[in-house]
Amino acid sequence: MTGTDLFSQYLPQIKGVDGFLVLRNDGHILAQNIEQAEKLASLSALSGINAQSIQKTMGFMPFRHLVFAREHNRSLIVFTLDKFYVGILAKTGFNLSDIIDNVYKFLFKIKIKKISDHSPKEEE
C-alpha cells in the first residue's frame, strides 16, 4: 500500500473529518476527496509557507498545524508532515481539538511506518 493509499483509506475514517487533501509544499496535490481541492491546496500551501516563515522570524520551534476557524461551516486544518501538507476539512459541530488529536495519532503512525520502511534491517 502506497503512502497516498494510506491517507485515502484512513483519514476519512477519523471522526469529524469531512474531507482531506495531501499536497507537496509546492501545492501539487497527491491525494484528495474534496470539492475545490485546487483552491484549498493553494490556500494550504501558502498558509503553511507563511506559518514556517513566522516560525523562523519569531525563533519558534517547528510549525505543527494551523486552523482556519469558521463559525457555522467546515473549518480547515492544515498539518505539516516533512515536505508535505495535509489539509483536513472538519465537520461542523465536532470538537476541533479532538479531530486534531486523532489526525496527529494517524500522522504519527505514518512517520513510524516511514522510519521502519527505511530501516537498515528492511533494506537488507
Partner: peptide
C-alpha cells in the same frame, strides 16, 4: 479568499 465567514486563524508550533 476561500472562506468569507472566516473567524479566526490559529497557528500551532511545538512550544507556542
Amino acid at each position: 479568499h476561500s472562506f468569507h465567514d472566516l473567524a479566526d486563524t490559529f497557528l500551532n508550533f511545538e512550544e507556542s
